[in-house]
């Protein structure tokens, strides 16, 4: 049991495992804070190719964390949004991550 705790201290769900890669975590984190962003801005921010970003977005969409849609502007744009489920899953993940850190005793932080 200790062994499994060390391997997976947060006891990740299927959805949470999907954003354990850096690009997908950054996507979900950014969308959690900003709710929506354009595909092109996201591609530049993460330094990914369009195909690479598309692959990551498909993974997130498969578990229902994000969705993409086309918006009509002066040119066609693809906008990526976080879903309500994505907000709740990510929020729960961050709460558990914070409580994991809070579990560190104070004396270990200030002991010399």
């Amino acid at each position: 049991m200790v062994g499994s705790l060390l391997k997976d201290p947060l006891n990740l769900s299927k959805e949470e495992r999907v954003f354990q890669s850096q690009p997908r975590f950054s996507i979900v984190y950014l969308l959690f804070l900003k709710r929506r962003i354009g595909f092109i801005q996201l591609k530049d921010l993460l330094g990914l190719t369009p195909g690479n970003l598309d692959h990551h977005l498909k993974k997130l969409e498969e578990v229902g964390l994000t969705r993409s849609r086309r918006v009509l502007s002066w040119r066609p744009l693809v906008v990526v949004e976080i879903t309500q489920e994505g907000i709740e899953v990510f929020r729960n993940y961050i709460v558990r991550l914070k409580s994991l850190l809070e579990g560190i005793p104070d004396k270990l932080l200030y002991d010399k």
Partner: peptide, 16 residues
């Protein structure tokens, strides 16, 4: 690893 991910994601948010 989780913290490293958060730090890198913070950088993405700041740049945005």
């Amino acid at each position: 690893e989780a913290l490293d991910r958060v730090l890198e994601a913070l950088d993405v948010v700041e740049r945005y």
